[in-house]
Amino acid sequence: MLILGIETATESVGVALGGRDGVLASVTIARGRRHGETLAPAVQFACRHAGVELGDLDAVAVDVGPGLFTGMRVGIATAKALAMALDIPVVPVTSLESLAESTRDHHGLVVPVVDARKGEVFWSMHRSDADGVTALGEPTIGSVDDLLAALGERGQHALCLGDGAYRHATALRDGADCVISGDRHPSADTLVVIGARRALREEWVTADLVAPLYLRRPDAEINWETREVRA
């Protein structure tokens, strides 16, 4: 079981190769926002030094957000292209799931928080225990106050992580029973761990079904008053 993990929902590019026994190779390029230029060479580099061929891959795991859109679309497009060309499935993973998974050794309520800008955050709630990490609800977008209300409602001590948690650390510590610790950004290594586990259970999709996670607002027709006047 060989999984390629592609993480481009942050300013960095992350690529990892591995399977059930762990990560074989991992490459991170943190030279801000050069996803289009660096992702494909990073995949090639990781394969070469891990001694594997693209044809050996069983599945591609890719971060579908929420996160940096300009990066994410490069990773998603690349994952889809590889999966189609190699005729293998894709394991789509949200950045929130990936962050939650990175705290596996911590037991209790885990709340990954991703900065959505304009004062908003994406978050989801997870229970982490000896059996692993389990989602307790759907990913949500809202203000920091909305998050504080959700944490208050849950009424449990929480571990918050992710760039949104660090950005709004003071508000979170003052307004909720929580600690802020752990990773700021999801990693390609975690994608491989999640990808390998889900691939065993065939929890995967075909490339055409992979899409970025939209949380901000529903899709609608553009109100083209000006263009209609012309037409």
Partner: peptide
Amino acid sequence: DLYRLDRTSEIADLALAELAEF
């Protein structure tokens, strides 16, 4: 140039706000 677009999700896909950030 947004002229050719018909849906708000297509505008969202362009991530124009992110382009300004860097």
